Every structure is written in structure tokens, then in C-alpha cells.
Amino acid sequence: MTITSLNDFKEEILTIIQNLKEKGSYQANSYLTEQETAAEEAFKQELLESLANGNTRLAAGGNGLEQLIKELVEIEGYTKVRIEAKNQSSDISDIDISAEKNDRFNNSRLLIQAKHHRGQTSSHGLRQLITHETDDDESNVQKWLMTTGSLSSESKKLAEEHNIRVMEGKDLVEWISESLEHLSPATKQKLGIIEVPKIVKLK
């Protein structure tokens, strides 16, 4: 008979004890779940940094971000999704992307201003949306400011006052993560995303 020291299983024992203290039980697959969650959070943080810092192969000048958002909107089931021409008017009013969804139960239109920024995004994009007029029924129109950066509390208040929805970088990355299986291989490559099986050390 071989006698094995408990020290060889120290990490496993400590993990079980910690789970018993925190959750009152221990399941063998809980460790894998924790590792998967940690890996997903690390992925989203790295993707956010890559997007904000321009460390991707998306087209420069904001066009790459617009193309990415266009694809994400199409995945959501919107049709007639198009990137609008620049300098649409003589004032600051402007939208980057428009989209429509018309079915038996829904009739809506999206007007999106996209900002590829690092750090804080100013209120300029909001003012571009505020001054943009549309002939559509306002109740069917959603105006969105989407940015790879963040917004100040003042900008968020301004958006709320004008019924404009905002999506900051962390929320944009969450959207990308949820849509991964539907993104085109070309877009994944531009974002630097690869999908390969990974082995974790079991405890």
C-alpha cells in the first residue's frame, strides 16, 4: 500500500474548504466555472483596451468602429442598416449609422453616433444627435451615442434630458462578447480574436 502525504493535495483541500465556508457546499465543476468567468472578464478587459487604444485592424478614422457597430446591429435583426454620408448638413447635426426593424409587432428606427475614443468622450456627439431632426414618429426612433470611451455624469444627464441612450466602452465590449458566435471571421480577425480550446489546471 502506498501512503501519500496530504501536502500533495494542499491546494485542492484549501479550495474545498473555502467553498464550504463561502457557499456551504462544494461541487467539482465550480472551479471550472470560476475559471471560465475569470477568463471571460479578462478577455473583455483586453478587448476594451485594444479598441480604445486603436490596437486592432479596424479601419482608421472611426470608419472601422462604424462597420463593427453596423454588423452588430444587423445581428440584432435590424434591416436597412447603413453608414450615412459625412457632412450631412451645414450645422453640427449628424448621425453615423441608421437602421430599421419592421415586423408584425415592432416598427423602430435607430440613429447612432459612434465615437472611437480613448478616455472620456465629450458631449459633442450628443449635440450632433440633439440637433438631428427626423420626419419619423419620435416614439419609434431611438437615438444612441456609442463610444469606446466613457461619458461624464454631466453628459449622461444631458443624454437623459434629450431621451438619448448611451453605450460606453464596457457595454460595447459586453455586446461584442455576447455576439461573438455570430460575428464574421473577418471581423474577429480585425479585432484580434481567436477561438481555440484551452486546458486549465484542475483542482
Rank of each mutant, 00 (worst) to 15 (best):
R104D: 15
G24Q: 07
K70F: 05
Q142L: 10
K203C: 10
Q18P: 06
H117C: 00
E195N: 05
I199N: 13
V73R: 02
E66G: 01
I3F: 14
E178M: 08
Q88N: 07
K44A: 14
E41D: 11
K198L: 09
E160M: 08
P185Y: 00
A28R: 06
Q113N: 12
D136V: 11
I193N: 07
Q88A: 13
E74T: 15
E76H: 00
E138H: 06
S150T: 15
E40P: 00
A38H: 11
L110V: 15
D8T: 06
L191C: 05
A114V: 12
G125L: 02
A42K: 13
T33V: 09
M146Y: 11
Q18G: 05
K143P: 07
N53T: 15
A52G: 03
I17F: 02
E160H: 13
R104P: 05
G62M: 04
P185S: 01
G54D: 08
L48Y: 06
Y78L: 05
V73E: 04
G61R: 01
T131R: 13
E41V: 13
N163E: 09
G192Q: 09
A52D: 08
V141S: 01
G125Y: 11
R109K: 10
M167A: 04
Q67H: 10
D8Y: 08
K156R: 15
E160V: 08
I92R: 12
N163T: 10
E66P: 02
I130W: 09
S108G: 03
S50T: 15
L202Q: 06
E174N: 06
E34L: 10
E133V: 00
E41I: 15
E168P: 06
S139T: 15
T56C: 01
I194V: 13
D137P: 02
L129V: 06
V141H: 00
L129Q: 01
E41P: 02
N140A: 11
V81W: 01
K115V: 13
L158R: 05
Q113Y: 15
N19E: 14
S150H: 13
K44W: 10
Q142P: 02
A99E: 03
G119A: 01
I69P: 05
S179W: 02
T15D: 12
K21M: 05
A159C: 04
I16T: 01
K143V: 10
K21V: 05
E161Y: 10
P197C: 06
E46H: 06
L151G: 08
G169I: 13
L191G: 04
A42F: 08
T131Y: 15
I112E: 02
S98W: 03
V200D: 09
G125D: 07
E76N: 03
L47Q: 06
E133T: 00
I69K: 00
E76M: 01
K156S: 11
K115E: 10
V196Q: 08
A59N: 12
K188G: 06
M1W: 15
F43S: 11
D135T: 10
I13K: 10
L20P: 10
F105I: 00
T2N: 13
T37A: 12
L110C: 07
E100F: 03
G169A: 01
